[in-house]
Design a protein around this nucleic acid. Structure first.
Length: 293
DNA sequence: TTCATTTGACCGAC
DNA sequence: GTCGGTCAAATGAA
C-alpha cells in the first residue's frame, strides 16, 4: 500500500467536487417541472460519467506514481552515434511499446450506421488513419487498427481498434488507447437519427477491467450503470471540463492527468463505455478531508 | 504528386 | 511457438 499526499489528492478532489456539483444540478433540475427537459438530464448524466472516469484514472496514476520508478536504461541515454540506425529504431520501438502499454484504455460498443452500403461505426470526431488489420483468433471478423492522423506532425499517440462483434455483426467493439494530444480533427460527433437512438444500448456502463481478483469475485457487478436518456439530446458542451480536448489547456495539471481528462471528455457521448483502470488500496493522509462546498 | 489503405513481415509478450 | 500489435513497402485514389 502506498501513501498518497494531499497535493495529488487536491486534484482528485477538484474532479469529485465537480461531479458533486453535477449531481446537485441534476437533482435540482429533476424537481423543477417547469424547466425540466430530458436534454439537460442527459447532459448532466454525461458530465457525471466523465467525472467518474476522470477520477478513477487520476487515482490509478497516483497509485503508479507511488511505486518505485525503474532504473534508467543506459541505451536511451547513450549517444545515438554509438549504436546503429537499426538498433536505435528497435530501441525507440521498445520505448514506444512500453509507453503505449501505460496509456489509459477504454472501449465502446457502437452500432453501425444502418442503410449505408458499408456499415461503419459512427465518426467519433477525430481524424484516424488505418495502419493495420489482423485476423484475430476465435473472431469471425478481422480487427482494424487506427492511429491519429496527426501522429507524426503533433506526436499524438492516440490509437483505436475496431472489431465487428461476432454475435451481432451490426455492432462494433471500439477500443481506444491514449488521449489525443493534437488539437486537430476534433469536431462535434455526427448526430444520430431517431432510428439509431432506438437501437442504442439501454444503459451506460463503465467497466473497471483491471480490478484486483478479489474485487472481480465480489458479488457486486464490476460495472457502474447509468440510465440512458435519448442521445439525440446530447450537446457538445457536455464535457465535465468545459475547455477543449487539448491537454495543454489544463494549466497546472500534470500532463498525464490532463491527457486522461481529455480522454474522458472525448467519450462523454459513448453508448457503452468500459474503462481499463486498475485500482488498488490507498492510505490517505490523516490531514486530508473531503469537503464538498 | 500526395495521401490513405492494404498487406506481409517483424517484434514483444505470453 | 503462437498471437496480437505495429511497421513499412506496395498499391490505389484523388
Amino acid at each position: 500500500m502506498e501513501k498518497i499526499h494531499n497535493e495529488d489528492l487536491k486534484m482528485l478532489i477538484d474532479v469529485l467536487r465537480q461531479g458533486n456539483g453535477h449531481v446537485m444540478e441534476l437533482e435540482a433540475h429533476l424537481y423543477n417541472y417547469e424547466t425540466f427537459s430530458s436534454e439537460t438530464c442527459l447532459l448532466l448524466s454525461s458530465k457525471l460519467q466523465s467525472t467518474f472516469a476522470t477520477a478513477i484514472a487520476i487515482i490509478k496514476l497516483m497509485e503508479q506514481r507511488g511505486l518505485p520508478s525503474p532504473p534508467p536504461t543506459s541505451a536511451t541515454d547513450s549517444p545515438r552515434s554509438q549504436s546503429s540506425e537499426r538498433s536505435f529504431k528497435e530501441q525507440e520501438r521498445r520505448e514506444m511499446c512500453k509507453k503505449r502499454k501505460s496509456l489509459p484504455r477504454w472501449s465502446e460498443q457502437v452500432k453501425a450506421c444502418s442503410g449505408s452500403a458499408m456499415e461503419i461505426p459512427l465518426d467519433d470526431g477525430h481524424s484516424w488513419r488505418k495502419y493495420g488489420q489482423k485476423d484475430i483468433l476465435g473472431a469471425k471478423f478481422p480487427r482494424c487498427y487506427y492511429r491519429c492522423t496527426y501522429r507524426h506532425s503533433h506526436g499524438c499517440v492516440a490509437t483505436k481498434q475496431i472489431q465487428r462483434s461476432d454475435n451481432n455483426s451490426s455492432l462494433f467493439d471500439i477500443t481506444y488507447r491514449g488521449a489525443h494530444t493534437c488539437n486537430h480533427g476534433f469536431q462535434k460527433p455526427s448526430p444520430l437519427t431517431n432510428e439509431q437512438i432506438i437501437h442504442q444500448n439501454q444503459s451506460f456502463k463503465v467497466k473497471t477491467e483491471a480490478l484486483s481478483s478479489n474485487e472481480q469475485k465480489s458479488e457486486s457487478s464490476p460495472y457502474f450503470s447509468f440510465p440512458l436518456t435519448p442521445k439525440s439530446c446530447l450537446k457538445l458542451e457536455s464535457n465535465v471540463f468545459s475547455s477543449s480536448s487539448n491537454p495543454e489547456n489544463y494549466e497546472g495539471l500534470d500532463l498525464e492527468i490532463a491527457d486522461i481528462i481529455c480522454a474522458s471528455n472525448s467519450t462523454t457521448s459513448s453508448e457503452m463505455l468500459k474503462i481499463d483502470f486498475g485500482v488498488e488500496q490507498f492510505v490517505f493522509d490523516s490531514e486530508f478531508s473531503f469537503d464538498f462546498y
